[in-house]
Design a protein around this nucleic acid. Sequence first.
DNA 1: ATGCCAACACAATGTTGA
Length: 264
Amino acid sequence: MRIATWNVNSIRTRIDRVVAFLERENIDALALQEIKCKTEQFPLDALREAGYEVAAHGLNQWNGVAVVSRVPILDVQIGFPGQPAWNESGIVEARALGAKVEGPGGAPLTMWSLYVPNGRELDHPHYGYKLEWLDALATYSTGVLAEDPARLVTLMGDWNVAPMDSDVWDIEFFAGRTHVSEPERAAFRKFEDLGFEEVTRTRVDNYTYWDYQQLRFPRNEGMRIDFVYASPAAATRVVSAQIDRDERKGKGASDHVPVIVELT
DNA sequence: ATGCCAACACAATGTTGA
C-alpha cells in the first residue's frame, strides 16, 4: 500500500496536479494540508472520477486538512482531543484530521493529516501556540498507543519544524527564526520518545519545501519540514519512502512536495 | 534545469505563509 502526505497550498488551485500525482505515483491514500477552503468547497468531482473518496475539514480560507483515499475510509476524526485553540480567536483551527482507512493487509490504519502551526516569530504568541499544539498532540498520541500498542497509526504532514541543521539550506540564515529553535526540535523529537519512528529520514535525503521567492527552488535552497511518524507496528511495515521533488517544478506548483511511504 | 511569490477574500489592499 502506498500512502503520501502533501501540503498542497490550495486544493482548488491544484486539483489537476493532485489527481495526476495520485495516478502517476499509484497512491492509495493521501493526507493533504492547507486545502485553503471550507469543507463544502472541496473539489470532489475529479477525485471521485479517479476512484477516490474524501474526508475533508476546512473552516475558512486558511489551513484546512483532508485525507483522499481509494481504499475505504472507515472512520473520521475532526481534530484531536485536547487540540488547543488559537488564542487570539478562541477557534480550534482546521489543522488535524484523522482518517481510519483499510490499511496494509486489510488491517485498519489511522492516518492523521497534520498542519502544525507556523509559529511566525520566536516572540510571537503563535510560537507558544505551536509548542502547545505539538505538546497536546504528543499527549493525545501517548494515549492512543497506551490503549493498543499494536495499532497502525501515522502522524503525517507539515510539521513546520526542521529537526536538524542539515534540514535547511543555510542554518545561519535561520538564526533567531522559527522552525529550527531547540524548543521546536525538542517538541518534534518527543514523538520518538513515545515510540513513534520518523520513517522517511533514513530512506530518503531531500528537502520538502522551497519558498516561492528568491529563486529558492532553482538554487535548491529548501527546507525539510514534512515528515511521517509511524507507530511501532506501522513502522515495521514500511518498505520504502520517497520525496517527489519533481512536483516543485513548472507552473502552478505548491511550495511543498509530496512525501510517499510504501507499507506492506 | 527547476526561474525571480502565491493564495485567499474582497474589491484596493491586507493577511498568511516559512
